[in-house]
Amino acid sequence: MSFSVFSQTKKELESQRKKFKSEIIKLNKLLFDEKKKEKNALEDLRDIKQKIDVRNKLISTINLEAKFLSKEIKTNEIKLEKLHKNLADLKADYGEMIYKSYKSKSQQSRAMFLLSSQNFYQAYKRLEYIKQYASFRKKQGEDIVIQTDFIENIKDSLVYQKRVKDTLILSEKNEKQQIETDKKKQENLITKIKRKEKTYKRDLQKQIKAEKRVANKIDKIIRDEIARANKLARAKLKSKSVARKKNEFILSPEAKALAAKFELNKGLLPWPVKEGLVVRKFGKQAHPTFPGITINGTGLHIVTSNGSNAEAIYNGEVLNILLGSGGTKNVLIRHGNYITSYNNLENSFVKKGDKILTGQKIGKIFTDKISKKTKLIFVLFKNTARLNPASWILKR
Rank of each mutant, 00 (worst) to 15 (best):
S116N: 15
Q118P: 05
Y121W: 04
A123N: 04
A123I: 03
Y124I: 05
R126G: 03
R126F: 06
E128K: 06
Y129P: 00
Y129T: 10
I130A: 01
K131C: 08
Q132D: 12
Y133D: 10
Y133T: 02
Y133F: 10
A134V: 08
S135L: 11
S135V: 05
F136P: 00
K138T: 08
K138S: 07
Q140T: 04
G141K: 01
D143E: 07
D143P: 00
V145C: 02
F150N: 11
F150W: 03
F150V: 07
E152Y: 05
E152I: 02
E152F: 08
I154L: 07
D156C: 06
D156W: 07
S157W: 00
L158S: 01
L158H: 00
L158D: 01
L158C: 01
V159E: 12
V159I: 06
Y160W: 03
K162T: 05
V164W: 00
L168R: 01
L170K: 13
N174L: 08
K176E: 09
Q177E: 15
T181H: 10
T181N: 11
Q186G: 02
Q186P: 00
Q186T: 01
Q186I: 01
L189R: 03
I190S: 03
K192W: 00
K192G: 00
R195C: 02
K198R: 13
K198E: 14
T199N: 14
T199V: 10
K201V: 11
R202C: 02
D203G: 13
K206G: 12
K206I: 10
Q207G: 10
I208M: 12
K209T: 11
E211N: 15
K212H: 14
R213Y: 13
V214G: 03
A215I: 05
A215H: 12
N216R: 15
D219A: 15
